[in-house]
């Protein structure tokens, strides 16, 4: 069974014909080739598949694509603009907050949401914000430092 959904994907309006038994992650990766969003555990536990839906981070492996109908979706591909890295990406690079890179797209999107809500997060708030994203290289300290370096004060 197929269904047409309308969504704003990375700022661009789209009509997509999707199978009802596809997750949003499958549509992004397999149908649209947006492979920046990673498939980790595929069970909603690791956060590698994070995308922003109406600005809020969501595990896209746990969301049926049809449920994204009418929503605005931002993936990691929308973060760098015109070949220039986003300040969050630069901070992650500079602070060594990137090792194998598999968790990085999720971490960056979660950080983007955090800083929009709270431009000056404390360490506890940073830890809470990234609590749904697992880094199996265990480079959490560098990630927290990178996010802290972006805080306004």
């Amino acid at each position: 069974m197929k269904k047409t959904i309308r969504l704003v994907l990375n700022g661009e309006e789209k009509n997509l014909l999707v199978n009802v038994n596809q997750t949003l992650l499958d549509v992004l990766r397999d149908d649209l080739g947006l492979t920046g969003t990673k498939k980790g555990c595929n069970q909603g536990e690791c956060g590698a598949c994070t995308v922003l839906i109406n600005g809020k981070p969501v595990s896209s492996c746990s969301l049926l694509a049809v449920k994204a109908d009418g929503k605005s979706i931002d993936t990691i591909e929308s973060v760098a603009k015109e070949g220039h890295l986003h300040p969050i990406q630069i901070a992650f690079n500079e602070k060594g907050a990137i090792q194998c890179g598999f968790c990085t797209p999720g971490m960056i999107l979660v950080t983007k949401n955090l800083l929009e809500q709270n431009p000056n997060p404390q360490i506890d708030e940073i830890k809470e914000a990234i609590s749904g994203n697992i880094c199996r290289c265990t480079g959490y300290l560098q990630i927290i430092n990178a996010i802290k370096s972006l805080a306004k004060s």
Binding site: I53, K56, S62
Partner: peptide, 9 residues
């Protein structure tokens, strides 16, 4: 419950 990524849905 779960994580921030799940609590939003």
């Amino acid at each position: 419950v779960g994580s921030p990524l799940l609590r939003s849905i």
